[in-house]
Design a protein around this nucleic acid. Structure first.
Lengths: 214, 214
DNA sequence: ATATTCGCAAGTCATATGACCCGCGGCACT
DNA sequence: AGTGCCGCGGGTCATATGACTTGCGAATAT
């Protein structure tokens, strides 16, 4: 049983070239072609290909939006984005749209067919350059991620956290510290955010775990 | 010129196995072996290998810390982490420690030697399963990342941004809007954060690009 | 002419406030 | 009993303030 592939690209020449390459592979069958996003979505429903090769820059609907729509229609769809330019933004958008694969058109024919086989088995596919970019982005994001950088509370926040641990109401905390009730609520919200807790009770639990109090 | 590889793993058997595999490759030369992190760091400086194959779970210093140290000594070091278990945490830590490669020991001999060649050329290497995990993590992080969800300004912020665009000083903005100077500064800071700009001038530039003003 | 100091603009951070929303329990009206 | 309204606690958000830091240029001292 050969792998059924749909090819989406606005350039006829590119489509023809890829068609030629895939013709050489006995286990890969090109069953549909589309020239823009709308056509791609329509044809996907009609042909149910195993793998979609998706260009990004296209007139009408672009490849990212098309990918999103196809993934909405069929969460199991396997979409490999295939693009000339490896901007970080393209990669990011492709992944967020749900693509499992992302290749630059600079890849060799051999690499393309191997990648099609991989993605058809449900594996994720990324070329080296994009892997590098993704790693970089991941590092940058991790470092910025507030869950990593905000575990510590200010003096006021700690005061209030201690009262929370004694099950004190906002009203009572406000009286004790001579603050407006709204102010206390605000601090509680801050604490919840910093401790990644959904409410005051969980916050106290987390704080105890992390030895911030008691 | 063959690729000089250092192998770090606490299990003798694993080292011997990999040695055998690499012996079959004429362009890959195993020049050093270490059984824990400390030895790895020491030997790295002595032997200056092109590529380090690094296990994670080891007695004494683990592979993650060793990777971090090696990358501190030599930012251009090429470290490929090679591990039995593909936990998300291992992958994340390896990347944050600076590894360019991450492979599960489930890979084939063929894949290992190909990966060594790739990483020696400065390319990033990830096996399919880890690629999948990294994509997932990236998606999760991106969604939580406040830089993506906060492009919009409040009424006050917009007011102030417009004045910034006219090159107004904090003092003058404060007078015009009947606010304390500190308040204005605070709004400016918020705007900078939301627009991802380092200062007021860049903020205005970004705002114009994104059609938020003018 | 150079070094020092002073002041100011910009920016960061903790603090503070109230408007608003949501869910829930009690209470009145039917 | 059912329905609807009220009050209240909890939580989020925009707003507001001033203490503190830093970089820079102008004034002053050497």
């Amino acid at each position: 049983m050969s792998i059924k592939v749909m090819l989406v690209d606005d350039q006829q020449l590119m489509r023809d070239g890829i068609k030629m390459l895939l013709d050489l592979e006995t286990d890969i069958e090109l069953i549909a072609e589309a020239g823009d996003g709308h056509e791609a979505v329509r044809l996907y429903q009609e042909c149910a290909p195993d793998v979609v090769l998706m260009d990004i820059e296209m007139p009408g609907m672009n490849g990212i939006d098309a990918t999103r729509q196809i993934k909405t229609l069929d969460a199991g769809a396997k979409v490999m984005v295939l693009t000339t330019f490896g901007q970080q933004e393209y990669l990011s958008n492709a992944l967020l749209a749900g693509a499992q694969g992302f290749l630059l058109k600079a890849v060799s024919a051999e690499e393309l067919s191997q990648s099609i086989r991989k993605i058809s088995q449900g594996k994720a596919v990324l070329d080296s350059q994009s892997t590098e970019m993704l790693m970089e982005s991941y590092r940058a994001l991790s470092e910025n991620n507030e869950t990593n950088v905000k575990p510590f509370l200010t003096v006021r926040e700690e005061q209030i956290l201690k009262l929370l641990a004694k099950n004190t109401s906002n009203r009572d905390i406000a009286d004790k510290l001579a603050l407006a009730k709204g102010t206390v609520k605000n601090y509680v919200t801050q604490i919840l955010e910093k401790l990644q807790a959904p409410d005051r009770y969980q916050a106290v639990r987390v704080a105890k775990e992390q030895k911030l109090i008691d």
